[in-house]
């Protein structure tokens, strides 16, 4: 029938246009990064270091080239050695009881006092076993700057706010024990908000979730109290700003602003999407990320449930409307031809 032919032509050109401006254009604008499935083996770090060597080879100034190339080669060797050691420690069998003793050393900073140390507030570790990946925790204790892939910020990774851990817990077995302790004893049933606050909330606010870098903003009786609190938040933000270079963005609606692929790969290795960023790798496990993601969806796309509840009814209404309209049309047009 002629009308269907016309409809096919209209649909064809509409879909070609849609394909061109949406899936195709976005595939060209944003580079696709493969997810490493939340396993932390340094693959991406080593690849990045190899790429830096290629870039260094293209430098024209011979003097500069030799220098940069030298540094890049050394960086690659360091990364390879580091992640190979992490892999070795990972194979050791940890002893949680022995780990608990060493873990006491962590409590000096990770005590929940909420005081900023060297730029950020050290996280409480009560939920760390549920949130973070085992390999990542091993790497973090060995060398925090290397593990979080922000070593480019430091000439000496001892300068990292948590750098001193390198001198406190050193033996491979000791590291394996502490990680075993965290992975078996620091385990809770996570909720989305707690996951967000622990993993992201010390640098990123979420104003739609009523969160600042100091946690949930309470209700205040007087304006003075509210302002006092506000000043505290600003102080904390200034310290983070000094440490990170800029205030990390509020994540209220980041769920709508970035694609799922971006979020997932960015969280596993921020350098893969924003080379040079001062955002550290957080080391979330797959389950830990699922919880963080649930929170971001809750604040960023709060109408999802309501949409899915109402959608089918509206569509069914219009299907019935269309069927009735068709019957009316048929009755009106029956004598015309």
């Amino acid at each position: 029938m002629k009308e269907f032919k016309i409809l096919a032509v209209v649909a064809f050109f509409t879909l070609v246009t849609y394909w061109g401006v949406e899936p195709f254009a976005h595939s060209q604008m944003h580079k696709h990064v493969e997810s490493n499935n939340f396993s932390y083996d340094g693959k991406a770090d080593i690849e990045e270091a190899s790429k830096a060597i290629e870039v260094a080879k293209n430098i024209t100034d011979a003097n500069k080239k030799a220098k940069v190339l030298d540094a890049a080669n050394k960086k690659l060797a360091d990364k390879k050695a580091f992640w190979a050691e992490v892999s070795q420690v990972s194979k050791l069998k940890g002893n949680a009881a022995a780990g608990e003793a060493s873990f006491a050393a962590c409590m000096a900073c990770h005590n929940g006092s909420g005081a900023n140390m060297g730029g950020v507030i050290p996280p409480k570790l009560d939920n760390a076993g549920s949130l973070y990946d085992k390999n990542y925790l091993i790497a973090l204790i060995k060398d925090p700057a290397m593990a979080s892939n922000v070593d480019h910020k430091y000439d000496n990774t001892m300068m990292h706010p948590m750098g001193t851990v390198k001198t406190m817990i050193t033996a491979p077995q000791q590291i394996a024990d502490v990680v075993e302790f965290i992975k078996t004893k620091k385990v809770v049933k996570l909720t989305p908000q707690v996951a967000f606050e622990d993993a992201c909330g010390r640098c990123h606010a979420n104003r739609y979730g009523n969160l600042t870098q100091l946690g949930t903003t309470p209700k205040f009786k007087t304006e003075q109290e509210a302002l006092t609190h506000r000043v505290k938040v600003l102080d904390e933000q200034d310290k983070i700003k000094a440490y990170m270079g800029k205030l990390p963005p509020d994540l209220s609606i980041i769920d709508r602003a970035r694609s799922a692929n971006f979020m997932e790969t960015f969280i596993q290795d921020p350098q893969s999407q924003l080379p040079g960023t001062s955002m550290p790798r957080v080391g979330l496990s797959k389950d830990g990320y699922a919880m963080v993601q649930a929170y971001l969806e809750k604040t960023g796309d709060p109408s999802k449930e309501a949409r899915h509840a109402l959608g089918p009814w509206v569509i069914v209404f219009f299907i019935i409307f269309t069927m009735l309209a068709y019957l009316w049309k048929k009755s009106q047009w029956k004598d015309l031809h």
């Binding site: 219009f318 299907i319 269309t322 069927m323 049309k329």
Partner: peptide, 13 residues
């Protein structure tokens, strides 16, 4: 109008 409304129904779906 009867035809318009029918087409409109499909469009609204």
């Amino acid at each position: 109008l009867s035809k318009d409304i029918f087409v409109m129904g499909i469009y609204f779906v």
